[in-house]
Design a protein around this nucleic acid. Structure first.
Lengths: 201, 201
DNA sequence: CGAATAAGTGGACACGATGTCCAGTTGCTA
DNA sequence: TAGCAACTGGACATCGTGTCCACTTATTCG
């Protein structure tokens, strides 16, 4: 693990005696996130560092100071939602939280992720593009969780199965099903439900 | 369907009376495919149109004349292998070909695709990147085939399930399992086998 | 209060890739 | 062997990336 938060790029130890973030920097950060959210929502053309900087009314150098790339900005935008989901998985009510059978918990995770993807499709399509996906914080957490469920269900070779079970919630697949094919979230979740109960029978 | 072959970029009607491809053009095409194969195999840095042109010793304009992008070149490189697989699915011996139960046929498809991905990982990582994947010829064929299997197995909502079942053989997932995690093809195929038999129970 | 200082700022720059265009060349055919 | 059409190759305009550095400003401390 790195000493920095994977999602925000901020040092993890916010309460350290190291000099606090300056007021203008904080203001600019808000401008950046706001502008990026607008650009993602607008969906007109690819969201680039250049566009974000111009939309936020700041220089490129300033943008690069805090965020190394578009993915890190996307991560910051969905940060709070993902923390909520993690909390619900770790300590919320079943079936998402502890207490339900593994297959039901996996299905519940699928349902929650489908909602998340639906609410922030353009962001996740940047955040989880190709390889980056596996480096993103959320994937690591989901992977750990699903692996635990596999072990609890006595499934063979959890290390090989876990990524197979996570593949169907890749943003590319979701986008194809939701936008291109026009499937409802309920139908997608139902298909994933069958997957969960089929494999973790 | 377009009047051109999705894989080779060549007109579909090779025997038409339209002027045949000139000798120098054919030579250059061979040079291009050869150079691209070498670049993909070498694996040193991203394979771009520019590099391919230089490696083949031809100009950029010449390259763009036949191939609009790197993906189309990658498609041409695996064309013959994919045609073989399609033939085996349509008319080969079971379980890949007709005659075996749907779950077995799906598992056999998984096994064959895993082999294909393993033999040409770098090519497929370009060919199936993000959205492009669904536009590539192979995906459409596999999709149709798997949908047929789902219908044959009386699975509910084949249109929602089919992409869920195809997601785990995305090159990104395969790369993670094979290269990053170091799993053997056999283990990956076994996990997919469980998936096939779990869902098409 | 008013320097000193370090963090923050913004735009210029070099680089690399894309896709287009067109003047010149060459293979093919009659 | 002449002419046409296909082919060739490199120049060009465009766009995005990531770095760099001289300048500015918020904060701190004497």
């Amino acid at each position: 693990m790195s000493p920095r938060d994977l999602l925000t790029g901020q040092p993890l130890d916010c309460t350290e005696d190291r000099p606090r973030e300056r007021a203008d920097a904080a203001r600019n950060r808000a401008l950046v996130l706001d502008a990026a959210a607008r650009l993602f929502a607008a969906g007109s053309g690819p969201v680039t560092m250049d566009r974000i900087a111009r939309a936020a009314g700041i220089g490129r150098g300033t943008l690069y100071r805090r965020y190394p790339d578009v993915a890190s900005i996307a991560a910051a935008l969905v940060d709070s939602r993902e923390r909520e989901l993690q909390a619900a998985i770790l300590g919320g009510p079943p079936p998402l939280g502890p207490g339900a059978p593994p297959a039901d918990r996996l299905a519940a995770l699928y349902r929650a992720v489908v909602e998340l993807l639906d609410a922030h499709t353009p962001i996740y399509r940047v955040l989880f593009v190709g390889e980056i996906r596996y480096a993103a914080g959320a994937y690591g957490f989901w992977r750990l969780h699903v692996r635990t469920l596999l072990v609890a269900a006595d499934a063979p070779d959890p290390d090989a199965l876990v990524d197979v079970l996570l593949a169907p919630i890749a943003p590319e697949t979701f986008h194809l099903q939701r936008q291109v094919l026009g499937l409802s979230c309920a139908r997608i979740a139902a298909a994933l439900d069958r997957l969960a109960h089929g494999v973790l029978a």
